[in-house]
Design a protein around this nucleic acid. Structure first.
Length: 821
RNA sequence: GCCCAGGUGGUGAAAUUGGUAAACACGCAAGCUUCAGGAGCUUGUGGAAGCAAUUCCUUGGAGGUUCAAAUCCUCUCCUGGGCACCA
């Protein structure tokens, strides 16, 4: 009898699988259906952590099951290799970002092997390889060609001392991470992708996706479609001859227009400098704007209670509904990036406006009454008075104090008021999205250079496709230079010839957001070595049809950005006739987050990081795989409990023991029903990614098996088959080495269950009195109510409850009987 | 402040989706085995009372619907995650 030695057999099988190319997916396999199975490719941060294991191992179980179901499974892997940490390492420790990245990848490749995952390494994709980023640049050119890439001034975090642009991550408490200087917002010229052009489709196509509902909801909220209206407020002018000026606001509550008692502009609103000469308290206003510039957007929004603002004294606007002159304020609770950057404030019917009005003593005028309080059909009498309002009434109701619209419902008034003003040219309907265009410019070194040349004569000129890739130059200093990317330090890189006129010109020095690289990588896996195209159409048709990736598994932290950007890219490529599908990931699931043993997020500084390598050494990769999945629901994650792992190892030891040392029983197994039940349970649970209950049911099966006097071969074989996706090395060793089978267990068909054989003939029925269970009765399946009642009347323990006779009897076949006394 | 998850034994959790609450595992206790063990095996293990049969209580809290609620509804309190005060 041999002893289960995971270290030895795991290394052996990892090597054999690699040599045999067992997991290399074939393009266009004729005898099998394809299954494109994808995990989010990792960032090469240095070490593979337990969270990667959790993600990859869960997904791997599902993939292996598909393989055993006879699919041509492609389960590729690669690295999302551009990004800030490489640059930080370079700056701090003087290592070239490339050296740092490639050495991390090498480490992680080795660690990935030890997970026993069936990744097809022959398709590996690395986003910082010029062979890959050539096509990222090509994607940029496609965007540019289609009018979806454009340049404009956009704010960036700016450290005045270091003269550099900072990522949000590098801003700590509003200060520069490196030098502690207060960070300000600075407008610089940057590149954006027009994702807003796809807002409607990104929203409506969510419907056809098999994704978790919460994720869809989050994307919906992120896109944030709202129907409303643009309303124009005329700026009151002393001088009659001045051309008419208007401030436009966006509102979804045109019904409250008569209650608009002031206007608020975002501090960055263009109108402010335009009105400069008329503002009496200009120095106060300027000071406020300067202060606002110091705050990041997040900070502006996280200040809950103390909304601040300044009135633009000397400026008034006219409420187009009732002709009243109302004041204009600026406040940073209004964002320049949403809508028109200006709002009409209706303090009686909006919480934020209410708070602001209370703070600054502004007029609160109630114009909507709850329908239940509305008494006078003509609305001349207000039932609640604004002064008495203790909070804003934000729901729909009936209009009051709104002249000819009194008595009209909010819903109707929204339409009618806009129509009424539209005739005068003062309003129009508008669909507004929260979604903003995607800012892809980064003033950094370690990213894909944007393939653009700035020519004095021709303007912005794209690099010719035949000149791709524009390779990253060698530089010595990776710090951004005066607001420009470190690429600006390389004369050789910057100076180029204009592709149009051939004269001296300068290259764009910004690099692209790394999300651009990861927005199309799943296409590349279909044809990773193609030098002529990002992927061949035939390959794309084969792997991506009919609904994109068949299963995508990754963290919930990507519910918005990565997933939305990938969907956007796919739609653009689809429109250009370059993708066979307009959605990349037909089915997607998230795994949960593994927390440290203390219930906190794992981090090196907290010292609660779990090292998978150590666990593998002590218990074997198969046990680590199984334990991770046994801990709880896959989508939940949770704190790591270092003690539980021995339970799984014990289980594997026991399976090993009976598999290598069993006495064959020739008669039929007593466990036929349980065997069929277990196959059903494990099969269905893997499909649903409910790994923990699948493992529990295998444990129950083994427990029963061990209670038998002798064990039947079919039961042991079944458990090895069921175990194979979870503990692949273990199952392969028993299947091929111990039992001397000729081919891999992963080429064997998956066990099937007989639906007729999953029902026990004898069942137990719960006997309840007034809903309380007082006992159980054993009976044959399908037993009738009268038979049960008869049994109870003869049962010593139960019959006493029946004294007085039941008023009512509820009988659920094969489950319970409940007597209401 | 808003949005999304989630609260079940000492711990991770399960519950056929409204029908026996606590499967499976960890831990703990006792016993066996071992030179010894942080190894293995057996048994027990939600709480309270009782020698026991048994009884009562129990799914964050308070109400409600129902013959029957961990599951559905209302309110409320915590915990985790996300966020862009979106007009």
């Amino acid at each position: 009898m041999s002893i289960y030695n995971p270290k030895e057999i795991e290394q052996k099988w990892q090597k054999r699988w690699k040599e045999d190319g067992l997991y290399e997916a074939k393009d266009f396999a004729k005898d099998k259906k394809k299954f494109y199975h994808l995990v989010m490719f990792p960032y090469p941060s240095g070490d593979l952590h337990i969270g990667h294991w959790y993600n990859f191992v869960g997904a791997d179980v599902a993939a292996r099951k598909k393989m055993r179901d006879g699919f041509n499974v492609m389960s590729p892997i690669g690295f999302d290799a551009f990004g800030l940490p490489a640059e930080n390492a370079a700056i701090k420790r003087g290592i070239h970002p490339k050296t740092w990245t490639y050495s991390n990848m090498e480490t992680m490749r080795g660690q990935l092997r030890t997970t026993g995952t069936m990744f097809d390494w022959s398709r590996e994709v690395v986003t910082c390889d010029p062979e890959y980023y050539k096509w990222t640049q090509w994607m940029f050119l496609k965007m540019y060609e289609r009018g979806l890439a454009y340049r404009k001034k956009a704010p960036a975090n700016w450290c005045p001392k270091d003269q550099t642009v900072l990522a949000n991550e590098q801003v700590v408490d509003g200060k520069c991470e490196r030098c502690g200087t207060e960070v300000v917002q600075k407008e610089i010229n940057q590149w954006l992708f027009k994702i807003t052009e796809y807002a409607d489709r990104l929203l409506s196509d969510l419907e056809k996706l098999d994704w978790p509902e919460q994720t869809k909801t989050m994307q919906k909220n992120w896109i944030g479609r709202s129907e409303g209206a643009i309303i124009k407020f005329k700026v009151k002018s002393e001088k009659l001859k001045v051309k008419e000026e208007f401030i436009e606001v966006f509102t979804t509550r045109a019904d409250t227009l008569f209650g608009a008692t002031y206007l608020v502009l975002a501090p960055e609103h263009a109108m402010i400098s335009h009105l400069k000469s008329r503002i009496l308290n200009l120095s106060d206003v300027k000071e406020y704007i300067e202060n606002a510039k110091r705050k990041t957007e997040l900070e502006r929004l996280s200040e809950d209670k103390d909304k601040t603002g300044v009135e633009l004294k000397g400026v008034k606007v006219v409420n187009p509904a009732n002709g009243e002159e109302i004041p204009v304020w600026i406040s940073d609770y209004v964002l320049g990036s949403y809508g028109t950057g200006a709002i009409m404030a209706v303090p009686a019917h909006d919480e934020r406006d209410y708070d602001f009005a209370k703070r600054y003593g502004l007029q609160i005028k109630e114009v909507i009454i709850p329908a239940s309080h509305y008494a006078d059909p003509r609305g001349t009498e207000t039932q609640i008075h604004a002064e008495l309002l203790s909070e804003a009434f934000i729901e729909d109701g009936i209009l009051t104090d709104s002249e000819k619209f009194n008595g009209v419902t909010s819903e109707k008034a929204r339409e009618e008021i806009v129509k009424w003003l539209e005739v005068k040219g003062l309003a129009k309907k508008k669909v507004q999205y929260k979604l903003r265009d995607w800012l892809i410019s980064r003033q950094r070194y370690w990213g894909v250079p944007i393939p653009i040349i700035h020519c004095e004569h021709c303007g912005i000129v794209p690099v010719k496709e035949s000149d791709l890739p524009v390779e990253l130059p060698e530089v010595e200093n990776y710090l951004p230079k005066e607001g420009q990317s470190p690429l600006a330090r390389s004369e050789e890189f910057v100076n180029a010839k204009c592709p149009q006129c051939g004269q001296n010109a300068k290259r764009e020095t910004d690099t692209m957001d790394t999300f651009v690289c990861s927005s199309w990588y799943f296409f590349r896996y279909a044809d990773p070595k193609n030098e002529k195209e990002f992927a061949n159409k035939k390959n794309l048709d084969y792997w991506m049809k009919p609904a994109g990736v068949d299963l995508y598994v990754g963290g919930a932290e990507h519910t918005v950005l990565h997933l939305l950007y990938s969907r956007f890219f796919t739609k653009v490529l689809y429109d250009a006739g370059l993708s066979p599908v307009d959605e990349p990931f037909g089915k997607m699931r998230h795994q949960g987050i593994i927390l440290g043993p203390d219930g906190q997020k794992m981090s090196k500084s907290k010292g609660n990081v779990v090292d998978p390598d150590e666990l593998v050494r002590d218990f074997g990769a198969d046990a680590v795989r199984m334990y991770l999945l046994f801990m709880g629901p896959y989508e939940l994650g949770g704190p790591w409990n270092p003690r539980g792992l021995v339970g799984i190892r014990r289980f594997l030891d026991r399976v090993w023991k009976i598999s290598t040392n069993y006495k064959l029983q020739t008669t039929n197994s007593n466990l036929e029903i349980l065997r069929n039940k277990t196959i059903k349970k494990v099969t269905e649970d893997i499909e649903d990614l409910k790994f923990h209950t699948a493992i529990a049911s295998m444990m129950e099966y083994l427990n029963e098996m061990e209670k038998q006097e002798s064990i039947n071969k079919i039961d042991i074989e079944t458990i090895i088959h069921l175990l194979s996706p979870f503990a692949p090395h273990f199952a392969e060793e028993i299947w091929q080495e111990i039992w001397k089978n000729k081919q891999s267990v992963f080429k064997e068909p998956w066990p099937v269950f007989d639906p007729k054989k999953i029902q026990e003939e004898n069942i137990s029925i719960a006997v309840q009195f007034n809903g309380k269970t007082r006992g159980m009765l054993n009976a044959a399946r399908g037993v009738s109510q009268s038979e049960i009642e008869d049994l109870i009347s003869r049962d010593e323990k139960l019959k006493k409850y029946l004294i007085g006779g039941p008023k009512k009897v509820i009988f659920i076949k094969d489950k319970l009987v409940n007597f209401v006394i």
